[in-house]
Design a protein around this nucleic acid. Structure first.
Lengths: 223, 223
DNA sequence: GTATGGTATATTGTATACAAATGCCCAAGG
DNA sequence: CCTTGGGCATTTGTATACAATATACCATAC
């Protein structure tokens, strides 16, 4: 999207996720506009987007505040994500063609290359992981499913989760992708759904273990 | 929300759903502003909302068009709705308190009153139906689930579905609500989920039967 | 002391002007 | 005839001024 609007979006979002704007803080359009160096118009756009992601909430008179994003909210998001991505995996397994299967295999191979060494390339892992899940979502052939999941997948959460993974956890993740590939190769939708749901629920527990007792904001501050 | 912004939203939405703006039609902000009697600013707000609902799509250069909304798209939405509302019903069954259960019972009683006579009061049915589902969603206690479902529940689709229901179908719907109430009373989440999923999938087939072979837009035009 | 109402202030909503970009058309060259 | 490039028309993006609305504060009455 356009430059100023993106700057406002990225700026406000990072202020929220870094804890610079704590949960419950008032978000005046004028003040944000000044801090981001843009006018109110793109700020309003950005607030709408952030509201859709539930990072910002509005009171009954249209004033904006930083949403409270506790561990239970993250759990909420992960639970829905497990259900929806599981569903996507089922549909993908029932529709996938051989060419796409090959693409997924190459993608998971790239993930393997990124994590095989002693010092895993986490950025590479994340890139491969994102592509892998994106291909499945695309193959599921449901536009609405894609658009629903978009609001559920918080990249900062995934980023932090992966960075708390040790090499073993990264390899386990790669291994789960392999199992998913096996389910796809057999066109076994139920299998694929189960593996995907397990894959994502495990990711949540990795996140929760790393941040036990801390809210998402406390965590971000300490990072 | 604010007046002009709402007028733009409601106006554009009804133009799309009535077929006045056919699938694929270009949506210039200026033209829409004039037709709605407001300036471009509220039109832009409205387009963002409609885009989130997938009624409007944007090309890569930010130009807006009426999305193509075929029967298969409606099926897509209903499938996801069945899954998510099923999940909501499960959670609600596991959390519901007696006071809320009573509210739901009164709500379904109101639905019964609306449809008992020879000439069913479809508007009354719809109002009760909306409340019934809203209470369940609220009881499920997942903000994200509510926000996801909001984009999936197209009131015009529900409206048309209900208006194609005969008295028998209306009563069957009321009966399914009763079964849901039984599952809630037993706090049986799995039962509630299954009943809700069936309830919504049946609603889809009622819709599909009534509009066999027609796109949503064709149908709207003929209504 | 509390409640109530009104006014001042702050904040959001809308309109409009202008800037930036996109798309379209036609003309020139291959 | 097709391709390509430039320039004009159209469309979207941004800034800003002003209007409508909500909030906060204080004075006054009870």
């Amino acid at each position: 999207m356009s430059r100023a609007s993106d700057r406002a979006y990225a700026g406000i979002r990072s202020m929220i996720l870094s804890g610079e704007l704590p949960a419950g803080a008032a978000l005046g359009e004028e003040a944000l506009a000044e801090r981001c160096g843009v006018s109110r118009t793109p700020v309003r756009d950005a607030l709408r987007r952030l509201e859709a992601e539930l990072l910002v909430k509005r009171n009954e008179t249209q004033r904006s505040f930083v949403a409270d994003w506790s561990l239970s909210d993250v759990a909420d998001a992960f639970e829905l994500r497990a259900m929806l991505e599981g569903h996507a995996a089922r549909r993908a397994a029932e529709r996938i063609d051989d060419a796409t299967l090959q693409r997924l295999r190459r993608c998971n191979q790239a993930i393997f290359e990124a994590i095989r060494s002693e010092q895993p390339d986490v950025a590479g892992f994340l890139e491969g992981n994102r592509d892998f899940h994106a291909i499945i979502l695309e193959t599921s052939g449901s536009r609405r499913l894609s658009s629903l999941l978009a609001t559920l997948i918080e990249q900062p959460v995934i980023w932090r989760t992966a960075h708390h993974y040790g090499r073993d956890a990264l390899r386990r993740s790669h291994g789960e992708h392999d199992e998913l590939l096996a389910a796809f190769a057999r066109r076994d939708g139920a299998w694929a759904e189960a593996v995907m749901a397990a894959h994502i629920r495990r990711a949540f527990h990795a996140y929760a273990d790393a941040h036990q007792g801390l809210t998402a904001f406390d965590m971000a501050r300490s990072a």
